[in-house]
């Protein structure tokens, strides 16, 4: 069967075959990333209400960002949140990966249990946490009261610090299984012979950790950290559902503020400008992380 390609040389056929293989991906990326990105850039130079007429306003949306108190506050909050949520996810993920690394009895069940929260949608898990945090029927207050750790039910979402802490707790619970799986793959790719040699040389746990495990997992760690940081910078659902940005607007993440401007205040152009700035920040952050954690020859 030639499909009319008989006149093509072997080299041309090879190139065409390669092109056909990547075509679905190219189409997917074009339709779901390149075109929306171009559209967002285009919109960001307009006064673009959700409903009504649009008009070209040049870079006004971008210059207004500098005077948007809440935009700067949300950026600050999002970075602080990322800074606080990333280490526990990574450290706990690493500990769990180490625990489920070896083939012991029922290991599949343990891995499944740790991974289970990951398969729940973030919106659903946030609703579960709203219920668990409730002062009347929530399980947290019930447990703390039964253990005599508190005298009366606590309003966890009433104060900015506690609201932030419970959000971090919920996100760690929700996402740590994913980091565990990534790190587990990295751990399992390290040949056992290296550890056996280290054992023969009398290396202890920490020496093996710092001289074998972590250096050989550099790529996996980079991937886990980059994904975790991107996920944290783009956090939205948990704040929208659990705290609704409160108390006193202290938990409005940057994506929440973009959502508010685009869909609550109907300022799609302004929301687009913020999205482009956020994209730039994410590219910069990921580049820095990748550079720091790159393979050194």
């Amino acid at each position: 069967m030639t499909f009319g390609l008989g006149s093509l040389s072997w080299e041309q056929r090879r190139k065409l075959t390669g092109l056909l293989f990547v075509l679905p991906t190219v189409l997917f990326v074009t339709v779901f990333f390149i075109i929306p990105l171009a559209m967002t850039v285009f919109m960001s130079f307009h006064d673009w209400p959700l409903i009504g007429e649009q008009s070209w306003i040049g870079t006004t949306n971008y210059t207004e960002l500098a005077n948007d108190r809440q935009f700067l506050k949300s950026l600050d909050f999002t970075f602080r949140y990322t800074l606080f949520v990333t280490p526990p996810i990574f450290i706990l993920g690493f500990i769990l990966a180490s625990l489920v690394r070896h083939q012991i009895r029922f290991i599949g069940i343990y891995r499944t249990i740790f991974f289970l929260p990951v398969v729940i949608g973030l919106g659903v898990s946030s609703l579960i946490w709203v219920w668990m945090l409730d002062q009347r029927v929530g399980i947290f207050n019930k447990m703390l009261l039964d253990l005599d750790l508190i005298a009366k039910p606590q309003l966890f979402l009433a104060k900015p610090a506690t609201a932030m802490n419970v959000i971090i707790l919920s996100v760690v619970w929700k996402t740590v299984g994913f980091t565990m799986i990534l790190l587990l793959a990295g751990l399992q790719s390290i040949p056992d012979e290296l550890y056996e040699s280290a054992d023969v040389d009398g290396a202890g746990y920490f020496r093996k950790l710092f001289y074998i495990t972590l250096p050989l997992m550099r790529r996996t760690i980079a991937l886990a950290l980059i994904l975790s940081v991107i996920g944290s910078v783009l956090a939205f659902d948990q704040f929208y559902i659990i705290t609704r940005g409160g108390p006193r607007n202290s938990t409005i993440s940057i994506v929440y503020w973009i959502f508010n401007n685009s869909f609550t205040y109907w300022k799609m152009g302004y929301g687009s400008a913020m999205s482009i700035v956020l994209l730039g920040i994410l590219v910069a952050l990921s580049s820095i992380q990748y550079y720091v954690l790159r393979e050194r020859v």
């Binding site: 409160g246 929440y256 205040y265």
Partner: peptide, 22 residues
């Protein structure tokens, strides 16, 4: 109206919370 009064992250609620609760 929505931006002023009804938005859960708007100035009306933030003002009330800062004044009354804080």
């Amino acid at each position: 109206y929505n931006d002023l009064f009804n938005d859960p992250n708007g100035p009306w609620l933030e003002m009330i919370q800062i004044a009354i609760l804080d």
